[in-house]
Design a protein around this nucleic acid. Structure first.
Length: 274
DNA sequence: CCCAAGACCTGGCGGC
DNA sequence: TGCCGCCAGGTCTTGG
């Protein structure tokens, strides 16, 4: 199954990269192909070289490599990965940008489809336009049933679309939206404004549980990520409905159904998700 | 504000 | 085998 990076995969990546990156000073920047989601800043090297990565953070699906006065923002898009590899290693086929560190290693962004991004944020990265509009993190206490219920008011679109709106919740992608709704027993096609506060409470809990479980498993599967390439997270085997059209619902045995919502493949159990 | 559809990009796969 | 066309989903943009 796809290794599409959603919040948990990005967090697993952050945890593996942080020890290799924090404290290192940037020695050089090589952009092999600047044509990502947005063009890579031609002055990126000027901004980064000589500066020390103080911390690797995350907001939603964004990774924040913080230096004094700013941050390098990285998004993995749909096919992106980040790894730390010896600077002497030749780049791989789709390595788009390399940030050389002062210890002989490089931080490498690999992205076949170029939906990923590498941006420079001057000053407080949380104020960068791409990040400022994001909703609360899944793990935030602010994300609960009451919050989702309030945000759903007046929204007649499917509840699944609400969950995938980054302005409502940060870091939830198609797979986790499908899985959280299955766990909560809520139909993805139900109008958002017609989901009760109590049921949104179950959705919020499901999101938090899924994230925690997935980060733990992703962490094990991504063990070789530093120095090698990442593969699909171990959470794939735990998916209840995503990618399982026609197979038995793990809860009630009814065949899992698939349909398109807002242009995205959506998997759900027609019997126990209402 | 809300919402659906389009755009971006390319590897992998099914069908012939 | 080889070629063709579809599919994957993050998120910004556009237009109703």
């Amino acid at each position: 199954m796809a290794a599409v990076p959603e919040g948990p995969e990005v967090e697993a990546t952050r945890r593996l990269l942080a020890p290799a990156v924090e404290g290192r000073v940037v020695a050089g920047v090589l952009v092999r192909d600047p044509r990502l989601r947005w063009p890579v800043d031609p002055l990126l090297a000027d901004r980064l070289v000589g500066r020390r990565f103080e911390r690797v953070g995350r907001l939603g699906k964004w990774l924040l490599f913080e230096v004094p006065g700013g941050a390098l923002l990285a998004h993995l898009g749909m096919t992106g990965s980040l790894r730390v590899a010896p600077s002497s290693e030749p780049p791989l086929n789709h390595d788009r940008a390399l940030v050389a560190l002062d210890d002989g290693n490089s931080l490498v962004l690999r992205d076949a489809r170029k939906f990923g991004a590498l941006l420079w944020a001057e000053g407080d990265p949380a104020e960068h336009p791409r990040l400022a509009s994001l909703g609360p993190e899944v793990a935030d206490a602010a994300l609960d049933g009451a919050y989702l219920y309030a945000r759903a008011a007046g929204r007649r679109g499917p509840v699944k679309t609400l969950l995938m709106d980054g302005g409502v919740v940060a870091g939830v992608g198609n797979i986790y939206a499908c899985e959280a709704l299955w766990r909560a027993g809520v139909s993805p096609v139900r109008a958002a404004s017609r989901v009760s506060a109590a049921r949104f409470g179950a959705v919020a809990e499901a999101l938090k549980d899924l994230f925690a479980e997935s980060v733990a498993l992703g962490g094990t599967t991504f063990r070789d990520f530093v120095g090698a390439d990442g593969k699909a997270g171990g959470f794939v085997e735990r998916l209840a409905v995503y990618g399982r059209e026609g197979q038995d619902c793990p809860r009630c045995g009814e065949p899992v159904r698939r349909r398109t919502i807002a242009g995205r493949a959506t998997f759900f159990c027609p019997a126990c998700q209402t």
